[in-house]
Structure formats: structure tokens, C-alpha cells
Design a protein around this nucleic acid. Structure first.
Lengths: 257, 257
DNA sequence: GAGGTCTATTGACGCATGTTAGCTTTCTGT
DNA sequence: ACAGAAAGCTAACATGCGTCAATAGACCTC
């Protein structure tokens, strides 16, 4: 009975477009970006814990995250497993456009602002805007690359390094959309959230946070991470940003049409 | 210096087409399937351990697995982490078509037969054959769904259940392309392979295999699994096949064009 | 500002898993 | 048939992590 955790406040204020389309920006021209902005039919704000999409749902629209973080979760037994995190500018359920049902749920981590695009509009995009269609496929391939890295992390690292790697990844992803502050990374994650992302118990996540503090790698308080030395943290987590394709990874020079 | 493990024998015998395109089959008509068959320019056989594609490679062709198994691997330090397995009919590097470099390597697990399609041909497909383009996007989305399940498995299950889940998944995937035998599942996997897929040490993989035997869930000998009761094995592994989208998961009724 | 709830923290104990070492079985090539 | 190599197996001990129990701090509501 945690449904009340969510707090829904619809709104329809205009988009600035400033952060719209996130990672897709770098692969699209202004005309394409305006086109995408025009696709967004509704914008909503939701509170922490709101269940935005449910595993098994059949949808007729796709969701873009504009502000905040969301978790991709799979519930099994009475536990929750977080299998992914999205940052502003990410489409969270493009796969719901091509696949019938969703294989996992989408839950707000902290307050979020989301935009919706109807699948009808997306079908038009696929037909008329090959550049945008290509960028959307790219976005889902990037998610898959991140999934593979998470698999490797779970196979390779212990709990403290997993947590450090998570923050290193988020820091780089936020950097790519111009959203970092110098010596910190602010998130609404609880230690239980960290535990569910790293596949350990909440108590062990607490131990891991303590170890990062003890080692002087980072201080994590109520989800916010503080560090004087991102390079050291990234070295500690064996972080290598290649899998995020930050250098313009699309084969732009070889358009499909 | 394990390079000698691979044994390369080129060949150009004709395709039967019988198992071609695997999971894509169910979403395409005969005309589309013939078209795909025509795309395959070369067919090769390779021996166990052959490194088919290297992390960081920039490719100008994509590879379809026709016979055998391949691993998606990431090497780090002196260890290997297996982040995915493909079965016959799977494209193994469609992402290399849209992304510049590969984020992981592809290695033959046992002898394999592979076909190659040039990216030039794929660009034509994207332009002229929306049905096939859609099916290919679907294939990469299905891979992402499987990745998410692996993340959950690593977060949730202990080593014996991970191994059972792996075989349950492969059994279902092979069933979907009509390639199962009644009470067994034959693979060329060593216990070290199982360990690298499950994120445990080889010795612990051995313990886990022993436990499955002891419990009467399954007998695994040199990669081949034998069981009298697949349902029991799947219950033990908490396996639920939804994430494999075996029921015709594409939104066929809503074509893009 | 008092009470309640969620979150963070600590300690004790047990199980899962890693590491090292050595041994046995099976495969492979000659 | 033989020898070497690869794979599988077993035991002993160390560490990571889970569980339970209890407490402390932070935030919210009234």
C-alpha cells in the first residue's frame, strides 16, 4: 500500500526545449528538434514513487523524461529489482512502441516531469523523418549498451565499487546533457534504492556507503554524493565511459536515405 | 595466447533457409524471408573460441548466427565477463550498424556457422523494406529485454538458480525456433563458461552444478543438461518466459507504413 | 514541540562465494 | 595405446553478504 507515495499534479506550461531530447540532440538539427518538441502532447509532473507505467501494460503513447530520475523495475516475490535508471532527455519506453507489452515497470525516483508522445505520431515519424527514426533506434541501442555494462558490473564488482560505478555513470550521463555541478551529484536515491540497483541488501548498501566514506572516495548523504576527485572515484570503480558513446556514436556520415 | 583455440574453415555451401532469421521469421512473410536470405553474402564456419568481432571494432557488415552459440563478452583486467548469449537465427551485431564501435566482443562458443550482411545492403533494407526494418529493431529490443532479465537474475538469484535460469531461457529460445530435443539441452559450455555468465568463480559454478544434481533438478555434464522435468527446473529458477515475447510480440496490426 | 514514520546505522551470527592447492577424469593428438 | 592438456571435482580457509535485532537521526504531521 505504497500507492499514496505518489503525488500527481498535471500541468501544461510551455516547454523551453532547452534540455529536450537529451542525448538525441547531438544527432539532430534544429529543425528535427523543433519537430520532436511539437510531438509532445502533454507534460505532467509527478511525485516520488509514482508508478508511471506498469509491467504488462499495453501502451499507445511513449514517455520522455524531462526532469528528474526514473527507475526501470521488476517486482518478484516481495522484492523490487531495479534494472535501469533514466536521466532527463531519455525516452523511457520507446520499446513499448514496437513491442506489445512492457517487460518492466517505470517508477519515479523523486519528483519528475514527463512528456508524452502518441504512438500515432511516432508512426508518422518513422515514415517521414528517417533521421529522427534513426536517432530513436540509437537511443534504444544505447540503453542496451548500458544494460550490458550493468551485467558486467554485477558480475565483476563488489558492493562499494558498484555504488561508485553507478554514480560515475550518472555523472557522465549528466555531463553529456550539461547538467552537472562541480563537486557533487544530487539524487533522491535512498540507500534502499542503491541496494535494489546493486543487488545487495539495504544493510549491506549502508556498509558500502560507509566504506566509500572511510576510503575517502566519496561521501554519500541521502542520495547526494560529494567528492573532491571524480577521477579517483572513477578509477576506484574501474569506470570507462566508452559504453556511453559520448563521442557522437551514430554513423552520421552514412545516412539511411 | 588462446588464439589457436579457433579453427577457421571458410565454406560457401548453399543455405537451406530452413532456420534462417530465427525469431524474425514469425513476423515476416515468405517474400521478406527470401529477401533476407538474398542479403547474406558470405557464410563461414569457425571453431570453438574464435573471436568473431572485437570490442572497439568499426564494422561495415553485420553477422547472423546460423548454427551454434556465441557469447557477448567484455574483458577487464585478466577476466572475461559474458554479458549475453545468442542462438541460431539471431543477429549478433545489428547495433554495429547504427553505432560506430562495438561495446563488446563476440566469441564463438563451440563450432559456429555465421552469415554476413553488408551495411550497404542494410541501408537499402531500411529504405525499401519497412517490415524488415521493424523486425530488426524488434530484434534489438528483444536483446535489451533479455539483458534486463539477466540484470534481475544477477540481483536476485544465487548461483545454482542462475545456472538453472540460463538453461531455462535457452530451452525456451530454442523452442521458439523449433530446435529442442525432449529431455536435454546440448551446449558446448564448460563450467568456466557458466561461471563467467553467472558472475561466480569456476569453482563455485562447479558447486552449483553439483547442487542441481543433488536436488534432482538437472544433471549437467560437459555443458549438456538433462532433466526429466523442465517445469520443475523452471519453477526452481523462478523462470517466467514473458520477457522473451514468444507470443508474437510485435505490434503487427499497426504497421509503420 | 510531540509523536510517528521513514531512513540511516551498528553489532552478532550464519550462509554464499572467493581463493588456493591438489587431485581425477575426459578429451585430443600422435 | 599413450601422453599431454583441458575440464571437472574436492577440501580448507578467508571474505562478502544476508538476516535479525536494536538504536539513532531525519523528516512530516498535527
Amino acid at each position: 500500500m505504497d500507492a499514496i507515495r505518489g503525488d500527481i499534479r498535471s500541468s501544461d506550461f510551455p516547454l523551453t526545449g532547452e534540455f529536450l531530447a537529451g542525448r538525441l540532440r547531438e544527432h539532430l538539427d534544429q529543425d528535427d528538434l523543433n519537430y520532436i518538441e511539437g510531438l509532445i502532447e502533454t507534460v505532467e509532473e509527478h511525485g516520488d514513487g509514482t508508478r508511471l507505467l506498469e509491467r504488462g501494460d499495453v501502451t499507445n503513447k511513449s514517455t520522455m523524461l524531462i526532469e528528474g530520475y526514473v527507475f526501470r523495475t521488476i517486482e518478484s516475490g516481495d522484492r523490487r529489482y531495479i534494472v535501469g535508471v533514466q536521466v532527463p532527455g531519455d525516452f523511457v519506453d520507446l520499446h513499448g512502441f514496437a513491442l506489445k507489452r512492457l517487460d518492466h515497470s517505470i517508477v519515479a525516483a523523486g519528483p519528475v516531469k514527463i512528456g508524452s508522445v502518441s504512438h500515432e505520431s511516432l508512426r508518422t515519424v518513422m515514415q517521414d523523418r528517417p533521421n529522427i527514426a534513426r536517432a530513436m533506434w540509437f537511443a534504444t541501442l544505447l540503453d542496451a549498451s548500458i544494460h550490458r555494462k550493468w551485467i558486467q558490473i554485477l558480475e565483476q564488482l563488489d558492493a562499494p565499487k558498484r555504488i561508485a560505478h553507478l554514480y560515475a555513470e550518472l555523472h557522465t550521463r549528466l555531463e553529456l546533457i550539461g547538467r552537472t555541478v562541480p563537486r557533487a551529484l544530487r539524487t533522491p536515491f535512498t540507500q534502499l534504492d542503491l541496494a535494489d540497483m546493486c543487488g545487495v541488501s539495504a544493510i549491506h548498501a549502508n556498509r558500502a556507503v560507509g566504506k566509500l566514506r572511510e576510503l575517502g572516495v566519496a561521501e554519500i548523504r541521502r542520495g547526494d554524493l560529494y567528492t573532491d576527485d571524480w577521477d579517483r572515484l572513477k578509477r576506484y570503480a574501474r569506470f570507462n565511459a566508452d559504453y556511453l558513446y559520448g563521442d557522437g556514436a551514430l554513423k552520421l556520415d552514412e545516412g539511411w536515405n
